[in-house]
Write a protein that binds this DNA or RNA. Structure first.
Lengths: 153, 153
DNA sequence: TTCCCTGCAAAGTTTTTGCACTCAT
DNA sequence: ATGAGTGCAAAAACTTTGCAGGGAA
């Protein structure tokens, strides 16, 4: 039942990172971290995370979840996303992986991933033309997912 | 004092559009529309718009601004943007123009534009690979603008 | 022991909604 | 005249903050 076993190394590495920054390894933080490692493919809101974590740690407060998500995003462990549904969504940020982009279904709200960067040349162009030093980008596609597409007519 | 003169055609065209949809051409809607035509290059929040419009129409309510922005975005007259500062921002959406993207300075928050689409081939790829029917995209670059870049060290 | 972190509740922000009244058509 | 549209205030929805107490290092 515990996919976390396979992620033990990753988990340890992150704990070390927290310690190096002199952040305390509280059970709340551990539980939240584990929740994301066990649901790498999902885009969890603070509320989602709260509900999920409350199961293992009933006394946790929503504010703690917010503070922890902030912290983990700050450290680059999570990626904070905005899919336009009025709440921030977080996903585990694999270090080794290239930036991926999101496909958002305007019908059902499903979010899937799209790997393929291809934006490096654009960034170089921007450096030259606009004088910006680009450090990050965010690309989203909106449309109809396979299911909704066929349900349309 | 009225840049709107040059935009009379555009303004009339939009009024016609509203009428065709049987939306009433209230003075509130007219005033908001004019504000955007006079500030085509800006990315106004609801509050920004409210302040701006209140000058010409002191009795307007903030809720009306929200409702009008919604309506105009729905009709494609405005484009709703999210630059991650916790409020939605709207800009006039030129019909003739290609999609443009945004450069956001992470230091001072300045938002500038970047014309160049180049995403059509990506969209075609997505249609094939992910089965999505893509209808829109949103690309943002984050970095340091010229000013902030030089102020860095 | 220290003070970082937490839970709780209150407050803050942006946006939406209910309702009676108004006015564009 | 009629119902879409409006202003106001209250509510909703998400997130942040203040504070006293608790626990990781």
């Amino acid at each position: 039942m515990f996919k976390l076993e396979e992620r033990k190394d990753e988990y340890q590495k992150i704990c070390d990172l927290l310690r190096h920054h002199s952040y305390k390894l509280t059970p709340q933080r551990q539980t939240i971290l584990k929740a994301f490692l066990e649901h790498e493919d999902q885009h969890l809101s603070a509320e989602d995370t709260f509900m999920m974590v409350k199961h293992n740690y009933p006394d946790i407060g929503l504010a703690t979840v917010y503070r922890t998500l902030d912290l983990l995003a700050e450290l680059g462990i999570l990626q904070k996303n905005d899919f336009g549904d009025g709440r921030s969504r977080y996903e585990f940020n694999r270090q080794d992986e290239h930036h991926h982009h999101h496909l958002i279904c305007v019908q059902c709200g499903e979010v899937s991933e799209f790997d393929e960067d291809l934006l490096e040349s654009l960034e170089a162009q921007i450096e030259k033309r606009n004088g910006y030093h680009v450090i990050d980008h965010d690309l989203k596609f909106y449309g109809y997912c396979e299911k909704c597409k066929s349900a349309l007519d």
